[in-house]
Computed example of a mutant assay.
Amino acid sequence: KNCFMLFIFYRQNVSCSHSLMAFATYIIGQTPFPEFSAVVMLDDLQIMYYDSITRQAVHRSYDDSKHYDEEKSDAGVIFRDMYNDMKGRAFYLKEHLNHTDGVHVHQRLAGCELLNDDKPGPLQTWDAFDQKNKEEFIFNEEKNNFQIELPWIMWDNLQFAHMKFLYKTVYHPVCIKVLQSYLQMKKNNVMRKVKPRVRLMKKTLTDSQGLQISCLATGFYPRHINLTLFRDGQPVDDDQITGGEILPNGDGTYQMRKSLVISEEELREEHKYNCTIKHLSLDNKLDITFDVADPGSFSQSVVFSVLVFMCVVVPIITALIIWRKRQAAGKCSVKFS
């Protein structure tokens, strides 16, 4: 769960760059799931799957790359190495942390990134065991620097040098190569820009006489979006807002909704509420103002509009009926004369 939330946070905060990420899980104990499994994502598009039962890298879509066999072989090497490493570390941690028998889960999020200028970014790996412990590996190719944050295991110089060698000569170049290859093949999917459709909603709260306003942006891609609710030009505090999660639509696009409850007292104060949206598909931000007229006044205006409609339309309809009857009567008199 920790690694998955890291993935969500990571993708929400990367706007113009592209990443190749593997989300891997190793399970100690009896479950209906494979002992080891991994899903590879190009940005938010799943491209590959591997597990310890088939021991084969399965592509989720047709791969017409002339380097397909080479890529499949590279993926097999990486996944087998990750499987053995996570297995060894999981059993070590189980003993080291004095966990009892049962089901224990070791998760890993690992991958690389191409920055906005197509320059390779760092290779990073995050580990979590039973959702409580974290460990991070970072290799920066530009600085030729390898570091470990919050290590679970004490590393000697030889182990450190070996891991740096693997990250530099195997993991990082293979990750960047596969990322560039799939980015070229899937560019129509991952590099497209779809503008959000925005809908403002309000609902009267009968129990409190207040009002709930909601701003919904849907149908956008890529998934990174900035949706902010304002009160009198100032952002509304997050603890007053509900929603805000980015959710997938069935067509490969995304949606986000944020809601705010306005009390009856606040309605009388006549604040101005806005919904502002920023997205890569938009040249300028969208800024839309809510109509938060007092619900009572709104009801009165509706009643008044209905009365006006009745006063104007009903006489017209009545006159039309009388006219048609007179026309019919005239035709009958001519016929029988």
Rank of each mutant, 00 (worst) to 15 (best):
D237V: 07
M191Q: 15
K132A: 03
P295R: 00
G252R: 04
L307T: 08
D130W: 00
Y10E: 11
S61V: 11
E265R: 11
V302N: 14
C332A: 13
E95S: 12
V190S: 00
G252L: 04
R324G: 05
V77T: 11
L6T: 07
D207G: 03
D101S: 08
K177Q: 11
N13A: 08
K72Q: 08
Y26A: 01
L227Y: 05
Q300H: 13
F298T: 13
C275T: 00
W155D: 04
L93R: 00
Q209C: 14
Y167P: 01
E265G: 02
F220W: 01
C3E: 01
S333G: 15
T31M: 03
K72G: 04
A328W: 14
L179E: 02
I225L: 05
W155V: 10
D101Q: 10
S299R: 10
A293K: 15
N249H: 03
D44H: 02
V308D: 11
L216N: 05
V198G: 06
I148E: 06
V190L: 02
M163K: 13
V306F: 06
E113F: 02
G29E: 01
K187M: 06
L205F: 13
W323M: 10
D291M: 07
H271E: 07
C332S: 12
V261A: 14
K202P: 04
R89H: 10
N188C: 05
E113P: 01
E245Q: 15
S17H: 05
V174W: 07
Q159V: 04
A57C: 11
D74W: 12
Y10K: 03
V236L: 03
K134S: 01
Q12P: 05
D117W: 02
N144E: 07
P122K: 09
E142Q: 13
A319R: 12
T253H: 09
Q184P: 07
K203W: 06
I138M: 04
K272P: 14
K94T: 01
T276K: 09
P173K: 03
K132D: 00
N157L: 09
S301K: 15
H172S: 04
H18T: 08
V105P: 01
T289H: 15
V170W: 10
L282C: 05
S337T: 15
S299L: 12
T31Q: 00
E149V: 08
S61Y: 12
L282K: 07
S17M: 10
L45T: 09
P248E: 04
I277R: 00
N133R: 03
L286Q: 02
Y49H: 09
V306Q: 11
W155F: 15
V334C: 10
N274Q: 11
E35I: 07
S37I: 06
K87N: 06
P295E: 00
Q147W: 09
G252K: 14
E270G: 01
S263V: 02
M201D: 12
E142V: 04
A38V: 08
V198D: 04
F129P: 00
D74E: 13
Q147F: 07
Y221G: 01
A57Q: 14
V308R: 13
V178Y: 04
I27E: 02
F79Q: 03
D287H: 11
N145R: 13
Q131E: 04
W323G: 08
D232N: 12
C3R: 00
